[in-house]
Computed example of a mutant assay.
Amino acid sequence: MENSRQASIKRNLAIRARVIQAVRRFFIDHDYLEVETPCRIPAPAPEAHIDAEAADNWYLHTSPELCMKRLLAAGYPRIFQVCRCFRSKERGRRHLPEMTLLEWYCAGHSYLDMMDQCEDLIRFTAKQTGLGNVIVYQDQSIDLKARWDRMTVAQAFDKFASMSMQSALASNRFDEVTAVEIEPHLGRTKPLFLYDYPVSSGALARLKPDDRSVAERFELYICGLELCNAFTELVDPAEQKIRFEHEQTVRRLSGKNVSPMPQKFLDALQYMPEAAGNALGIDRLVMLLADTNKIDDVVAFTPEEL
């Protein structure tokens, strides 16, 4: 037998298979339709800090979001997908340029409903993977059974950061301070939802009706590991176009490639119902359940091995 990395991660790949099987079982049991959408598209969602990989004058999708929302607009109220997604220049201990993403949408739900469902999904997946209500990650015991913590981004800055959220935004250091000073503290003993992001960090999310300075977006953290990104969907095509144009301007001023406006998505958005959506990194979830802090340990092949 070849003495390779692949031979050393058999346990982790078995966990990975059980995780994906459990995810499918969860959504099928909750009356979701599994869908497949193209991974090569003419125009991705313009986002300032996510770079799509070019593919013969089109792009490999960074997420299946635009096509899945068009299915919502066409009358599919509960859909999910497990697929490969591609993000240029993303490589690190927790990042791969080609990753596996779980994305799901539910008409009539808000980001608060999505938090509850996210709890149910991960508890179910941990159980189906052979773990109980308490998991151990990097010598830290995590209680999945108790109600998970929720904290606004502003509260997290006040508690953990060296400056306020507004100061970080004004100095263009929001992402840096969040990653370095806040994220390591999140979800240390039980999972934590970090929610209500500033408008500038929620290009496709609905603004909060009683506080339009923040978007109805959350991320889930367990032991400092970010697992998902979710929000109440923005369904106003005029506002969405303005948001996209802003993201394109930021990209242009940064010297980055600017992809075409996804006009067919904007055209469909007027028919989309109120809904919530969530994108969860399967690789990250397997890292958590396999108790490893390196994404290479949970994939069959890394880019460098090909």
Rank of each mutant, 00 (worst) to 15 (best):
R24Y: 07
D56I: 08
P42K: 07
A17F: 11
M68E: 09
P46Q: 08
E98L: 08
A55F: 11
P42L: 05
R5N: 03
I79Y: 10
A43S: 15
S88P: 00
W58I: 00
I9M: 01
A52H: 11
D51H: 09
H61G: 03
E65V: 12
G92W: 13
R87A: 04
P97V: 01
R18N: 12
C67T: 01
V35D: 08
A22K: 02
R40A: 13
R25F: 10
G92V: 11
F80H: 06
D56H: 09
M68K: 07
C39N: 12
I50S: 12
D56S: 13
Y32E: 05
L66C: 15
R16V: 05
E36H: 11
R91I: 14
R94S: 03
L13D: 08
V23A: 02
V35Q: 10
R24D: 06
L71Q: 12
E98T: 13
H30P: 03
Y59A: 14
L71P: 10
I9F: 02
P42W: 07
E65I: 12
K10Q: 10
H61Y: 02
N12H: 07
K89C: 03
R5P: 01
R18Q: 15
I79P: 13
D56P: 00
P46T: 10
S4Y: 02
P38Y: 14
L66I: 11
H49P: 00
K10D: 06
P42A: 14
F86P: 09
V82K: 06
Q6T: 15
R11V: 04
E65G: 14
D29I: 03
K89P: 00
A14H: 08
A48F: 14
M68A: 04
R70L: 10
V19W: 03
H30V: 01
C85D: 06
R94W: 08
T100F: 11
L96G: 00
F26T: 15
R87Q: 04
K69D: 13
F80G: 04
I15K: 09
P77I: 09
R18C: 05
